[in-house]
Amino acid sequence: MSTTDRLRSVDPAVFWPALAITAGFISWGALAPDSLASVTQATLSAIINGFGWGFVVSTALFLVFSGFLAISRFGKIRLGADDELPEFRTVSWVCMMFSVGMGIGLMFWGVAEPVFHFGAPPHGLAVAQSKEAALLAMKYSYFHWALHPWAIYAIVGLAIAYFTYRKGLPILISSAFTPLLGKAVNGPIGKTIDILAVIATLFGTATSLGLGAQQINSGLNFLWGTGEG
């Protein structure tokens, strides 16, 4: 596909709003970092305090649902045409999955997270550096790094893969909502879903890479006094 064809394939109804919102947040952070930090921290606290239970319940439902799909007849559905063969070997697929799914997070936080919770137990549920704190730290770490996150990845990936490679729809998050929205998926509702998906992907990736960069920066400063910033 030529550059011109790629540009023509960009959906302006998704691209420009997503770009404007992202640029707005970047500008806000550059011009008034204290204001952005205050608003985002207050928003995060409100979400955690009001809907933290929903996050825990939903991840558990994701895990149960993915297990059901794996052992039921639905687990035998081919994510592609009936006569198509896998493009990658299982070993290659598993390597890509771990590299993308866990990559920098597992490298830098697989050990740091339980140690951090051990020294500062979440929500004050245990005395720091006690046996209870160690158990609590591992519980939180297993919740973040064991089966629950993989269940979320699996369900989202399956939804996109099924409607893209089995049903021939565009590789968009909105395509997975076709059974619920019908033709409306091609209208403002579908565009809004895709805009939110773009923003969530950008911000999620930036957060993961940013935290990893901070960790690298801290390590370099510890070894060679390069300074932190």
Rank of each mutant, 00 (worst) to 15 (best):
residue 31 L to D: 00
residue 33 P to R: 11
residue 34 D to N: 11
residue 36 L to Y: 14
residue 37 A to V: 04
residue 38 S to V: 04
residue 39 V to W: 14
residue 39 V to H: 12
residue 40 T to G: 03
residue 41 Q to Y: 08
residue 41 Q to W: 05
residue 41 Q to F: 06
residue 41 Q to P: 02
residue 41 Q to N: 10
residue 42 A to V: 04
residue 43 T to I: 11
residue 44 L to P: 02
residue 44 L to K: 10
residue 45 S to H: 13
residue 47 I to N: 02
residue 47 I to R: 00
residue 48 I to F: 10
residue 48 I to Q: 14
residue 48 I to E: 14
residue 48 I to W: 12
residue 50 G to Y: 10
residue 52 G to D: 09
residue 58 S to T: 15
residue 60 A to S: 07
residue 60 A to T: 09
residue 60 A to P: 00
residue 60 A to N: 04
residue 62 F to W: 07
residue 62 F to D: 05
residue 62 F to A: 10
residue 64 V to E: 01
residue 64 V to K: 01
residue 65 F to D: 01
residue 67 G to K: 05
residue 68 F to M: 09
residue 69 L to I: 15
residue 71 I to W: 13
residue 71 I to G: 01
residue 71 I to Y: 11
residue 72 S to D: 04
residue 73 R to G: 09
residue 74 F to Q: 07
residue 75 G to Y: 09
residue 76 K to C: 01
residue 76 K to N: 11
residue 78 R to L: 04
residue 78 R to Q: 13
residue 82 D to K: 11
residue 82 D to W: 02
residue 89 R to W: 01
residue 89 R to C: 03
residue 92 S to Q: 15
residue 94 V to A: 13
residue 96 M to A: 15
residue 96 M to L: 14
residue 97 M to L: 13
residue 97 M to K: 03
residue 97 M to A: 14
residue 98 F to D: 00
residue 100 V to S: 10
residue 103 G to W: 08
residue 104 I to N: 11
residue 104 I to E: 10
residue 106 L to I: 12
residue 107 M to S: 12
residue 108 F to W: 15
residue 111 V to E: 09
residue 111 V to A: 12
residue 113 E to N: 06
residue 114 P to M: 02
residue 114 P to G: 06
residue 115 V to G: 02
residue 117 H to E: 01
residue 118 F to H: 11
residue 119 G to Y: 02
residue 119 G to D: 05
residue 121 P to D: 06
residue 122 P to W: 01
residue 122 P to E: 07
residue 125 L to N: 09
residue 126 A to H: 04
residue 130 S to V: 08
residue 131 K to M: 10
residue 132 E to Y: 03
residue 132 E to H: 05
residue 133 A to R: 09
residue 133 A to S: 15
residue 133 A to D: 09
residue 136 L to V: 02
residue 138 M to W: 12
residue 139 K to I: 09
residue 139 K to G: 00
residue 141 S to H: 14
residue 142 Y to W: 10
residue 144 H to M: 04
residue 144 H to W: 05
residue 145 W to A: 10
residue 148 H to G: 02
residue 149 P to W: 06
residue 150 W to C: 06
residue 150 W to Q: 07
residue 152 I to Q: 04
residue 152 I to K: 02
residue 153 Y to M: 06
residue 153 Y to C: 05
residue 154 A to Y: 10
residue 154 A to E: 06
residue 154 A to K: 01
residue 155 I to L: 15
